[in-house]
Computed example of a mutant assay.
Amino acid sequence: MYKACIFDLDGTIADTVESIAYVGNKTLKEFGLPAIPVEDYNFYAGDGADELVRRMLAAVPGGNEVNYEEVRVLYRKWFGENPFYHVKPFEGIVTLLEALKQQGIKIAVFSNKPHEAAVEVVHKIFGEQMFHKIQGQTAQIPRKPSPLGALAIARELGVKPEECLYCGDTNTDMDTGKAAGMFTIGVTWGFRPRTELEEHEADAIVENPEEILEIAKKSRG
């Protein structure tokens, strides 16, 4: 039944929280603001860099007294200069991706990162030949939870939305997949707790990457 699997990037296939926290805290320090614990960034990330900066500033004393636009610009500049700090695939992800392709399932990435940055990160971590499609945010593709990017990926891959699995780690991902009419899989190793995935009605919740392959196999009959 399923012919494609679309993955979120940060917190789903790539462990990036240390990278995000490193640049975030470096930026806060530049404006005389206190650092935020790395684990707290799990709740700030997932909806794009601009929203991340808003959440950072709201979380620290004095954050409302600095110029948001200046912080946003500096964060984007420094992240662009060093986007791979401690970034790595989650355990078992590469094996999963290769197994899905062996099953004839097309695989794609849909990220809230700017498109060029999403492509750069995916190619750096997984190589240029792993995915059939990588899609980040552009003028034509708005941020998730808009389903437009997921639907555009399905069209380009030549599959119907109902033939797609959509995998992510946040409420935003579950809402995106639902809005696109895809089968949503919430992963528990990413940014957010299982309860968030349950509250946003994930069709399935998995504890390890191998379970995604099993879902794909069973669904294909």
Score class of each variant (00 low, 15 high):
161 P>A: 14
130 M>F: 09
149 G>E: 08
138 T>F: 12
145 P>E: 12
113 K>E: 00
196 E>Q: 14
162 E>C: 06
186 G>C: 05
125 I>L: 15
195 T>A: 15
111 S>Y: 04
147 P>E: 13
190 G>C: 12
178 K>G: 04
148 L>T: 11
175 D>R: 08
197 L>S: 03
191 F>M: 13
191 F>E: 05
112 N>R: 01
194 R>C: 09
163 E>L: 11
166 Y>E: 03
118 A>S: 05
195 T>E: 14
192 R>L: 06
138 T>K: 08
180 A>R: 02
128 E>A: 15
120 E>Q: 07
174 M>K: 02
178 K>F: 03
186 G>P: 02
156 E>Y: 07
166 Y>R: 06
109 V>W: 05
167 C>Q: 05
138 T>M: 09
171 N>C: 06
183 F>P: 00
196 E>G: 10
145 P>Q: 10
177 G>F: 01
127 G>H: 12
188 T>E: 14
142 P>C: 15
184 T>W: 05
124 K>L: 03
162 E>V: 02
190 G>E: 09
168 G>C: 05
189 W>R: 03
191 F>L: 13
171 N>A: 14
183 F>K: 05
115 H>S: 03
168 G>W: 02
128 E>T: 15
173 D>Y: 00
123 H>D: 14
149 G>V: 09
178 K>R: 09
111 S>P: 01
187 V>M: 06
172 T>N: 08
147 P>A: 14
126 F>C: 11
155 R>F: 13
154 A>T: 11
178 K>P: 02
171 N>G: 09
152 A>G: 09
